Simulated assay, not measured.
Amino acid sequence: MLRALLDPATGPLLLAGAPNALAARVVEEQGFQAVYVTGAGISNTFLAVPDVGLLTVSELTAHVEAIAESVSIPIVVDADTGFGNPINVRRTVRQLERAGASAIQIEDQITPKRCGHFEGKEVISADEMTAKIKAAVDARVNDDLVIIARTDARAVRGLSEACERAAQYREAGADVLFVEAPRSLEEMRYITSQVPGLHLANMVEGGLTPILSRDQLRDLNYAAVLYANSAMRASVQAMRAVLAHLNEYGDTKGVEDLMIGWNDRQALVGKDVYDELDRRYSVGEHTSGQR
């Protein structure tokens, strides 16, 4: 299903990021065809820390399992550096595939990594990353699992080497290429024109890459476009507004429009489903009169 959606001629596939199962449910509810499990978003919301490589593979896997239980659309998972060397990558891919991932993204930064739009990044050798990609490809049980190879070499080695790395990762078996943090439209055009294959663009509000429209990215031949943390950042803005009002006035009158309604909230989390299960398995219903 995901591979069919990654078609530059009809795309790019719009990927909205979710840091937890509830956000993923909203992504699906709003009609997106796939959801992106954001490592930065989980770090921010689950641990209240920046995206500097503090999230563990076990914590990530638990989030993916919860999201897979909550949505029916394909799940693209940000697996950072793969959590170690090629052998670690093999285990990471196996875990995340079992948890429900449809695609797994691995990057070529050193461990611990940093957000792609932070300063101070460093990358491992292209050969070491190539070994990780090969390990990821070998580890997948289902050949439909998509392997996304991200390179952060643009920031420290220049655009030319970043493109050379992307081409090398494609030769190693990566299905989608992700050159992180290009600085201009011209650089983005250079990437897709010089490196064959399917490409992903990352749109980070306030980051290093210009925000382009979906039509512009289609013209540049991108297969997917990522908005990893837009929903999470919007939710924090709404929380701040409601809580500031509550703290100042002692109630939430006047800011109800910033909150999901009671009935809408229960519908979003499927309360009706659990009400039906409660009725089905009610002890009194099936054992009435029995002692």
Rank of each mutant, 00 (worst) to 15 (best):
L177P: 02
I133Y: 04
V176A: 07
A153F: 13
L198K: 02
G206A: 07
A103E: 06
P196V: 14
A167M: 14
P196L: 14
V179N: 07
I148D: 00
V204L: 12
E164W: 15
Q194V: 10
A174E: 02
E180V: 06
R183G: 00
K134V: 14
E187W: 09
L208C: 13
G173N: 05
E187Y: 10
R114C: 06
E122A: 15
A155P: 04
N142K: 14
I106N: 05
V195G: 10
P86D: 02
A155G: 11
A201L: 12
V195F: 13
S125G: 02
A172P: 00
R140P: 08
A149S: 03
E171W: 09
D144P: 00
G82N: 02
I211Y: 10
Q168F: 11
F118E: 12
A167V: 10
R214C: 14
I87R: 00
A153L: 11
Q109P: 02
P112C: 09
M203S: 14
Y169E: 02
E161T: 06
Y190A: 08
I191C: 07
Q194W: 11
K121M: 11
L200D: 00
E161L: 15
I191D: 04
A139R: 11
D144Y: 11
V137R: 10
M129H: 14
A149D: 05
K134S: 09
N85E: 03
V146L: 06
I147F: 09
A162H: 12
T92N: 01
C163Q: 15
T111Q: 05
K121E: 03
P86M: 06
L159H: 15
Q109S: 01
A103G: 02
R165Y: 15
A103I: 01
I133T: 05
E161Q: 15
R170P: 06
Q168W: 11
K121A: 12
E107H: 07
A103Q: 04
N85C: 03
A131L: 02
G82R: 00
Y169D: 05
L200K: 03
D152M: 11
V204M: 04
A172Y: 00
Q105A: 12
E205F: 09
G206E: 12
I133S: 01
M188L: 14
N142V: 08
V195H: 13
L159C: 09
L212M: 12
G84E: 08
A126E: 12
L177I: 12
Q194L: 06
A135S: 09
A139G: 12
A131P: 01
L185Q: 12
P196Y: 15
R98N: 13
P86Q: 07
R170F: 14
R170S: 14
L200F: 08
E107Q: 08
K113T: 05
V179L: 04
L212W: 04
S213E: 11
I133V: 15
R154P: 07
G84H: 07
E187H: 06
V93P: 08
L177C: 08
I87Q: 06
S213I: 00
A174V: 02
L208Q: 13
N142G: 00
I104D: 05
A166W: 15
M129K: 05
N142P: 00
F83Y: 14
E171L: 14
I191R: 06
L200S: 03
V195L: 10
